[in-house]
Design a protein around this nucleic acid. Structure first.
Lengths: 224, 224
DNA sequence: GGTGGATGTTAACGCCGTGCACATGGCGCG
DNA sequence: CGCGCCATGTGCACGGCGTTAACATCCACC
């Protein structure tokens, strides 16, 4: 007997949920969250629109799955950028000058975030799109965990801790540092992607990225 | 003869365009850009949906008008915050310590931006929403100016210039400073409004605002 | 080997944005 | 003064969307 996946011939699809998510991911990648159209995803999979309701509560639920995927993809990109920076914890460079390496890791985290945003704007916007959380009628609380599963947030916390541990950042500034750092990079990403700073491209964009990262590190590591 | 406005009795409205924009502003204020529904605006004004097409190219054009209004409202809020800071150019405080006043003005600009974002999230999101620019068939360029008329951008440039003039900020750091400053406050606004940092409220939110502003100023004014 | 529940289908509803033909009525021109 | 023209508003229709309800199909288990 064949594995359950991959059998598309019959009346039953076999792996419809994943197929729909895949199609929806393509839509989001190409056009952002507003392009995640349930009927179109079903069309691409070759199935009737209502079939999707056997696997998702509705369009919002499908979009939510894509959003989660986008958050994961972002975290992967950030992790890759840290590795590429050559300043990962335990690397030779980190041993030689832990403080400088911590700074470099901090910048790498931001650089990974922004690289992903500019390389995959549709998916980035989807990863941060507003979503109507299905509310539980009784408790009045969101049924699904607010999620924002952001493992990327943990990466940010870690490099900021390292900044303190190596003496680069005053412990006094540590509280709330995640918010300041996240805000800086996220703001640049959104402003460039959504229009206001769309004129930044190529070399100018790369310069802006480095400028924002440098300003952020300077602000976080200021002594007085 | 009466003024043209205010005559609603007859077949002709008399000021339909403004009335529609007003209704659309209410919609955006309450629910953000996705709530700007042409049919609903027409319904509220008491007119058929297609009547709107005599005054707007389509829904996108109506949304564009609301967006422009939102940008203006943001600039007004920022200007008010500078005045309220007591550190406006020419004030007694500015005379006594120009450098400190310039720093305070810079923070006030950011504070005004964020205050507006949190007080009017729907309109703020609308002011920065993506919009399908009607493309000119011949040139392939947007027919309407990319706009982002941002007079707020000018305010930001001015306070940054003052930071340099008073010696608080190194001229070397001046290029691109607008982008870094704007990114920092915009990122915080979006992250709080759109969900990821929605848990920040009340006192914690106020603290985050001040923390981001302080980090930004420190980063911009760093000496080395 | 039948039967039931999971998983698909078709039909239909009410929104939305939008184009087309027609109605209305104020204003300027003869 | 009257009349016709054009700006402005109306009704109707179309296709696309999300979503519900009723029906069909097939697999898996007793």
């Amino acid at each position: 007997m064949e594995t359950i996946k991959g059998r598309k011939d019959g009346y039953h699809h076999g792996d419809l949920r994943n197929a729909l998510v895949g199609a929806a991911i393509d839509l989001a990648t190409a056009g952002g969250p507003e392009a995640v159209v349930l009927r179109e995803a079903a069309r691409r999979v070759g199935v009737s629109p209502t079939a999707a309701y056997r696997h998702f509560a509705g369009q919002g639920d499908l979009l939510f799955a894509v959003k989660s995927h986008g958050q994961d993809a972002l975290a992967v990109a950030m992790r890759a950028e840290i590795a590429a920076s050559g300043a990962a914890a335990g690397s030779a460079r980190a041993e030689a000058d832990p403080g400088a390496a911590a700074v470099e890791r901090t910048k790498a985290v931001g650089r990974g975030y922004l690289r992903f945003a500019f390389a995959e704007p549709g998916m980035f916007r989807t990863a941060f799109c507003r979503i109507a959380m299905p509310m539980d009628a009784e408790t009045g609380q969101p049924t699904r965990d607010d999620n924002d599963n952001f493992s990327s947030f943990d990466m940010l916390s870690t490099v900021l801790d390292d900044l303190v541990a190596t003496g680069r950042m005053s412990p006094r500034r540590r509280p709330g540092a995640e918010v300041a750092a996240w805000s800086g990079v996220h703001g640049l990403a959104i402003l460039v992607i959504d229009g206001p700073l769309a004129m930044l491209r190529g070399e100018a964009l790369a310069a802006s990225v480095e400028n924002v990262l440098e300003t952020l590190v300077q602000g976080l590591c200021a002594q007085d």
